[in-house]
Design a protein around this nucleic acid. Sequence first.
DNA 1: ATAGGGTTAG
Length: 496
Amino acid sequence: MFTLLNRTSAKNIPKLVTKPSLSIPCCTLTTSPSEPLLPITQDAYLVNLILKSDSEALTREILHNPIVGWAPDLVNKVLKLLWNHGPKALQFFKLLDHHPNYAHSSSSFDHAIDIAGRLRDYKTLWTLVARMRSCRLGPNPKTFAIISERYVSAGKPDRAVKVFLSMHIHGCPQDLNSFNTILDVLCKSNRVEKAYNLFKVCKGRFKADSVSYNIIANGWCRIKRTPKALEVLEEMLKKGLNPSLATYNIMLKGYFRAGQIKEAWEFFLQMKKRKCEIDVVTYTTLVHGFGVVGEIKRAQKVFNEMVVEGVLPSVATYNALIQVLCKKDSVENAIVVFEDMVRKGYMPNSITYTVLIRGLCHAGEMERAVELMNRMKDDECEPNVQMYNIIIRYFCDAGEIEKGLNFFEKMGSENCLPNLDTYNILISAMFLRKKSDDLLVAGKLLIEMVDRGFLPRKFTFNRVLDGLLLTGNQDFAKEILSLQSRCGGLPRQIKL
DNA sequence: ATAGGGTTAG
């Protein structure tokens, strides 16, 4: 297992970390007198407008409102905010495509294609690709990366491979980069066998490089098949391609994933012994790896020792430690680490908050979880769908259905659109109290989710239908039944 | 959006 380590690793190139600017251009438009007169960002204003307008009003606002100066950046922001409202997003995109003075940019096309793919609306997807081409804006390698990913996550990896092999027909020739991308897309969805087959067939044609090999090795590691990963890397060495620190970190993580804790530690010791440049990723892998198997003391020991070795922890390292403390130790100790990181000047990110909020909820500390959620806004961090889903789920589980519903309403007013999970969580909760009014709410939620492009499972439909029939809501049940038959032909929507 | 570390609860 250590032959890999006999080679010198490539120089580790420091990564330039740039922080994206968080300032958002403000719009002086005010919505209506009943709403707060605070300056509202233009993208948020438009999203609200799009969500509440019928198609006639929308045409008027999008095409003929002279106050809105359309620009690619603004369009992309709107599309992003409408991420969990696919049909409306596509309606908006198509409408704006007919604007007299505005033409879509290539990145907006990519966004729209992504959304169509998520809705599994492949007809629209390929229409957009054709339209993009006729505007001479692509499609580009990124477009195909998006399309492949959508096919793979819809359970159609063969279609993804086919799309890759026919890229050139759409005016975008394949190269090593796009080859590596499709391999990675397949591996990240655990279709490693498929990736490996494609790799074997095409590695000569595209001159597979060490990145290709790393992607495949990581794929085998993801599905806990470390021997296959080692085999692939041996082949890489035979080809004269050098492993890099990324290669070693992939294997290290692979051992942890496969539960080979002893091997992981041995591998790390060998890395050290053979003068590999060990970096923050290596240490984060160790902290997380030891933590998830409950070896908290060792995780903390590694965390403390890395500084001695001259490697500073990153936010990700802190997140790893905080997470494992929440899971295997106590949320109180996790908070201690969180406060320590803040004191040292680290800026917690949304993962830090998600992990801590879940930890607090799990410990039954709902008030503190909510408090933290309010406090994170001071750190230029907005609560996201996942956090709302956690809070809503735990409140519902604790029997506080009203509080769950309150948070659901709150997210609507904060430009955080519910996703499939949100609806499933809430609909399930509507059966807990055995109240007939709750079932009416469940029915309304079901209608709303379909409207937003999410397809409920058959189980969900049946449950709501049964509930409505049992509580004497025959008319509403009929409405739901016709909704279900209208959904029959629709493809199933998956979560993010 | 070409590779390695940190959310995802049966």
